[in-house]
Design a protein around this nucleic acid. Structure first.
Lengths: 213, 213
DNA sequence: GCCCGCCTAGTCCGATCGGACTAGGGGCGC
DNA sequence: GCGCCCCTAGTCCGATCGGACTAGGCGGGC
């Protein structure tokens, strides 16, 4: 059984590897620091049974890596490991094609069972996302226009959260400051925030941006 | 050899335990989810050789746990494991009595060597904190007047982090807006931030305010 | 008592922000 | 094609912010 593990921290790699080892006696774990490295190292190989991705990676490249991996290795079930469990983050991961979302705080038995579930075609979500609407879009439904920020808005939000002024964000994204102004306005409205500082606070609370820690 | 490990995530426990196992053939690891549990479970036991504390714990109780452990188990070397390495956070941990600050991104060989170093009486710091002033206060020096925010500044910071405008903070604290202005100015300077949004970001990263998540 | 740091409060001013607009181009679905 | 939404870009303007000042009251340390 071949498992592709995207995890930059050696300590966590050890822990995950130890748990994965219980899945099967013939587990081979191939690790990479991030999505880029994974693609670079393993693009040529096929026949993966599972991909495990650390969703806590700072800088928000967690989601990017997810999309990246889904594109490069379509068909291979992908599980996100994370420490945060807010609805938004989990649902986004599932939307992007993850087949499981496992909390790092889960007991090892849970982790193993969840991984098995996913490899057998299931989808695993933490209990904390139990909400009002359907959790797993049947088809993919809710493409989301009033519940999600657009991709561009997320780009802006990520920098906004870090306290960058509009001018800097504009430079980073290669557009005019006025454009950023418009995006920021939309973000404030969406988050019901009165200013960018409050927006940053709200965004982190809601798990819109990967993390701040 | 008895090691007390404060780490809530089973996956990380596995990884850390695997690494700690290399320190000595007779390692016994006793784990707890947090400082409270550690004290509750192990307060009666003595003779610890090392304490390892996860410094990433959300809610900012990392620092609290640190102080707690130092108080309960004085004399036992304590090492903080963390994923962030900014100067402020590291120095605060050292100030509070940690004898080592190990990055989770370190190679396992580094982790092991650092732990040995600490157990033999040394202090280990990541290279990233190399700065202008002395890293390890000889006596304890700097009781901290320019290294810490004042109580009033912390009051302001807490509201500032939430995105409140000056007027609102002034109202909440019962002082004039000008006063808040002065405090905010001092906070920005202290955090080396260009605006309040960046200050909020920095404050959370450095664990100055309880949390954002 | 004197010094020092903190909290308070104020002024002035340029920079930045945020709201309310208009508007063109591009992509997608019906 | 037509509508709709998104991204882009712009203007205008009042509000807010942040820096650089001055200054008085208060409390703790030497």
């Amino acid at each position: 059984m071949k498992i592709l593990l995207i995890e930059a921290y050696p300590l966590l790699r050890e822990g995950i590897a130890a748990v994965l080892g219980e899945l099967d006696e013939s587990v081979q774990i191939h690790a990479a620091d991030d999505g880029d490295q994974a693609v670079k190292l393993y693009a040529a190989r096929r026949g993966w049974d599972l991909m495990v991705l650390d969703g806590d990676r700072d800088g928000g490249n967690g989601p990017v890596a997810l999309a990246r991996m889904r594109e490069q290795f379509p068909g291979t079930p992908l599980v996100v490991l994370s420490s945060v469990a807010d609805r938004g983050t989990v649902l986004r991961a599932i939307d992007q094609g993850a087949r499981g979302y496992i909390l790092k705080s889960s007991r090892r038995e849970i982790v193993i069972a969840a991984l098995r579930l996913v490899m057998f075609g299931g989808t695993y979500l933490p209990a904390s996302v139990a909400g009002t609407e359907k959790l797993i879009p049947e088809d993919k439904a809710v493409t989301g226009h009033d519940r999600t920020l657009t991709a561009r808005q997320m780009d802006v939000l990520e920098l906004l959260v870090q306290g960058k002024p509009n001018k800097e964000i504009a430079g980073a994204l290669g557009v005019s400051e006025n454009t950023i102004r418009a995006h920021v306005g939309a973000i404030l409205k969406f988050l019901d925030a009165r200013n960018r500082a409050e927006a940053g606070y709200a965004a982190v609370r809601q798990g819109l941006v990967s993390n701040r820690v």
